[in-house]
Computed example of a mutant assay.
Amino acid sequence: MDDVKIGEILLPGEESEQEAKARKVRRHFWPTLKRAMRQVPFSRDVVAAYYCAMDPATPLRTRGILLGALAYFVMPFDFIPDFLAVVGFSDDIAVLTAAFAAISGQIKEQHYIKADETLRGEIPDKAH
């Protein structure tokens, strides 16, 4: 996966595009996270990113970047199929890492607190 492709995935996009991505992420995030928990070394950050992306107070650009990365994470088909053990989520990790670098510091403590609460309990099957 090259930097150009990651850059394309992380384009914030128009508000209507963000809403479409948000619907997809809300629908598929929790089941995908359940499958990825053992393979994604920073699940807490991913869950905090989800809450940040869904927070209406998050700046539009930050929200767009996170939604792009999270939409890629939940896509059933990507460059490396997620069902392949160990390497399946490596491209997702690359995209998420790039997104975190691009939005440096925009995920707030409140998003991490919500992530910690969620991860201490049972991960839901659907958005909450």
Rank of each mutant, 00 (worst) to 15 (best):
P76E: 01
L60C: 06
E19Q: 13
T62Y: 02
L96F: 01
G64P: 12
Y51T: 01
R38C: 05
G68D: 14
L33E: 01
A94M: 15
Q39C: 07
G88Q: 02
E19W: 06
E14V: 00
F29I: 03
G13Y: 02
Q39R: 15
F73Y: 07
K24I: 04
P59D: 15
F77K: 13
L84A: 07
V47L: 08
H28F: 07
A36N: 06
V87I: 07
L84D: 06
P59Y: 05
A48L: 01
R44V: 09
C52V: 06
M75D: 15
A49V: 03
S90E: 06
P41N: 11
P31Q: 01
R23M: 07
M37I: 13
T62W: 04
T97V: 09
Y50H: 06
K34D: 02
R61Y: 14
F89S: 08
V86Q: 12
R38F: 05
D55K: 03
R23P: 04
G13V: 00
G88T: 00
L33C: 02
E15W: 05
S16C: 05
K21T: 04
Q18C: 03
L67P: 08
M37R: 13
P59G: 08
T62K: 04
V40M: 10
D91S: 14
T62G: 06
R38L: 13
A99Y: 09
R38T: 11
G64W: 09
L84M: 13
V86I: 15
R27Y: 08
D92A: 15
P41L: 14
E19I: 09
I80H: 08
D91W: 02
T97L: 11
R44W: 04
R27V: 04
R61N: 11
P76Y: 02
V47Y: 12
P31R: 00
V25H: 00
S90H: 03
V47P: 07
T62M: 09
E14T: 02
R35E: 00
Y72I: 10
D82Q: 10
T32E: 00
R27C: 07
D82V: 00
Q39M: 14
I65L: 11
P59F: 05
F42Q: 14
R61I: 15
R38A: 12
G64A: 05
Y50F: 14
R38S: 10
I65K: 11
A94C: 10
L84C: 12
P41M: 09
D55Q: 06
F83T: 01
L96M: 13
F79R: 14
C52S: 13
F79C: 08
A57H: 11
Y50C: 05
T58F: 03
D82W: 01
P12I: 00
P81A: 11
P12H: 03
I80N: 09
